[in-house]
Amino acid sequence: MDLVLFYIAATVAVFSTVMVITRLNAVHALLYLIVSLLAVGFVFYLMGAYFAAVLEVIIYAGAIMVLFVFVIMMLNLGKATIGQERAWLRPGMWIGPALLSLALMTELIVMFVQGVDVAAGHVVEAKSVGILLYGPYLLAVELASMLLLAGLVGAYHLARPAAHVEEKQP
C-alpha cells in the first residue's frame, strides 16, 4: 500500500518538475514547483520523517515559493516575456544539457545501485529530532540563525531602491 502511494507521489513529483523547467510563464512554473514540493513532502511522510514533511510544506512550499511569487509579481513582466521565453527555448537547446544531466543521472544510479542492500526505513519522531537539535546540534542551530540574519540583512540591502540611481533617470 505504501509502495503504491510512493509510486504515485514520485510520479507526480517528477512530472511536475519536468513541467517546471519547460513552462514559458513564470507563474505557471512556480505553481508546478509548489506541486512538486508537496509531492516530495508526501514522500518524506511515507519515509517516516514526519517533522521534515511538515517543514517542507510550511517553509519550502509555503514561504520560499511565496517569496518567489511576490518577486515575480513585483517585476510585473507582462506578456512580452512569454514570447521571449519561446524564442529562447528552441528544441535544439535541450540536447547539450540533456546529455550532461543524463550522464550525471546514469552515474548516480550506478553508484547507488551497486552493492546496496535492500533495506527498510525507520520512522524518526519529531521528538527525537527535537532532542537532537537541543543537544549535539545546538551550535548548528545558532549558526543557521546567524545565516538567516545575514540573509535578511543582505536581502534588505540589495533590494533597496538606491536613491541616486532613481535620481539619475531623466
Binding site: A10, V14, S101, A120
Partner: peptide, 28 residues
Amino acid sequence: TTIPMEYGILLAAILFSIGLVGVLVRRN
C-alpha cells in the same frame, strides 16, 4: 516503513538531474 530505500535515492537522483537540465537550459 516498507518502501525500499534505493527508490528514494533514485527519485532524488532523477529530480536532481531534471533540476540540472533546467539550470543549464533556461535563460531567464
